[in-house]
Design a protein around this nucleic acid. Structure first.
Lengths: 189, 189
DNA sequence: ACGCTAACGGACGCCGGCGTCCGTTTAGCT
DNA sequence: AGCTAAACGGACGCCGGCGTCCGTTAGCGT
């Protein structure tokens, strides 16, 4: 979809689109999702109208802006699946997912909410969850992951991890790391 | 302080004050802290001016409204300290604190933030933390609480627990219970 | 019963964010 | 180089929340 548009887009429009996405990523990461659209427009050096022309709603913008992180999520999970030791793989997945979410403020909210209309994001989320389920199954088979572990537990942990976003970025990342360690201990058999 | 005011307050004023506090508790619990002041005024059946006369800022209102929960917090911690088995006491404290925070949306935010000006709340928070430190010390002594446990870990868990407030109340309480169980497992030696 | 004053609340002006319109600019094609 | 339509962005009106002012009401003391 992006490529189809990209080809018919005029050069200045394509530039602006990229600048808007960059600005959105920066502003979202810094202040969270709850920012005025105009703040992003200003940061990108474009007028409000241009911003709205490219992304009619904030969620449309967020979905695009976080596409990269969404892919990173999938990569992390795939990497975990590829690990010959499933428990070790799961541990790393938890650590990396927590850190990813801590580093990009709005992403956690988008990811957890999977708001209506962002079916692209929701679909990727589902895929990731399916892979995680498989990883968890294997880790349980080795006896290292607690047998009563549920996927919901992992979702719960990630959601709770999102509760740390009131802190400054550095503190948040540190807290998130510690938090991931606690979660891993809780999941250990 | 409340009593000093109560005595010099006219009867209708005292009534309104109570109605406002009731309304605030209800609205905060239902929608969280981020509600227009006027919504609380409307709910209480008073004009905006009356609300502002009694509580000039939202934090002043929240501090008063959550005073009861704050006391409940202290009670929970004291109860934990009184338990002959410190580890058991700590477990119960964690469970109850998580549930308390889950049941009252805004409270978690106020508690964690201890925003400037609410020194009353902050002081109580400090007292509770001191007691918790003592409880943790004892629990470590019995060897049931992990030796590398820190008070920060507990604060972290409570803060993270606050991240669940996007859910509906019932779901939030359930998730919070499960979350407390996970935290306890993580803290177990 | 009456007056004084504390307390009330509707109404007001302000501000910041929203989404859109329209006159202007400029990329891209011939 | 000139034309055309795509793209731009400043400006506008709207809305909802904010905190305050002031004319009115009613509690309480005599």
């Amino acid at each position: 979809m992006a490529s189809a548009l990209t080809q018919t887009l005029r050069s200045d429009a394509r530039d602006n689109r990229e600048r808007i996405l960059d600005a959105a990523r920066a502003v979202f990461a810094a202040k969270g999702l709850d920012v005025p659209m105009r703040a992003i427009a200003r940061r990108a050096g474009v007028g409000p109208a241009t911003l709205y022309r490219h992304f009619p709603t904030k969620q449309a913008l967020a979905t695009e802006a976080f596409a990269e992180q969404m892919r990173a999520c999938q990569d992390i999970v795939d990497e975990g699946l590829a690990n010959p030791d499933p428990w070790q793989g799961l541990r790393v997945v938890i650590e990396k997912l927590c850190e990813l979410h801590a580093r990009h403020r709005g992403f956690a909210a988008s990811f957890a909410a999977a708001f209506p209309g962002a079916m692209d994001l929701a679909a990727r989320r589902e895929r990731a969850l399916v892979s995680l389920a498989e990883l968890a199954r294997r880790a349980k088979a080795t006896g290292q992951l607690s047998p009563d572990f549920t996927l919901d537990d992992l979702v719960l942990v990630l959601r709770a991890n999102g509760g740390l976003d009131a802190m400054s970025t550095t503190a948040r990342v540190a807290a998130s790391r510690r938090f991931a360690a606690l979660a891993i201990r809780a999941f250990h058999a």
